[in-house]
Amino acid sequence: MWLPIFGLILGVILGLLTDIRIPEEYSNYLSIAVLAALDTLLGGMRAYLQNLYDEKVFVSGFFFNIILAASLAFLGVHLGVDLYLAAVFAFGVRLFQNIAVIRRILLAKWTKSPEKNL
């Protein structure tokens, strides 16, 4: 359980240390991609806790969601419609749902056996 969190921290440190910066005009795409990635990550966690986890689904979903979100934002920019808002909305809703499910599962597990951690 701790390894993914450690990986997240490692990624953040790596990103901060390497001082990578993307051009201002692409920051929209990256933000939407980050949202998609977070959503996928939480979805994966939820699936894992529900014992529905599938490695292939998770990894493919991760990249597919990111690409879809970024291309949606790209299309929105070129159509003059803020299409990325659709992605933000969809991912935001799913994010909250996933978090709610995770919270419930964790809560249920904790009330069942308080001393036993995952």
Partner: peptide, 28 residues
Amino acid sequence: KDIKWGFTGISIIVGLMLAIQFQTVKQP
């Protein structure tokens, strides 16, 4: 173990993206 490695890899990527986005947005 496999699950954890896949998860970790994705986590690293997410962290990296977060950090880059943070730096990009923070700059101005």
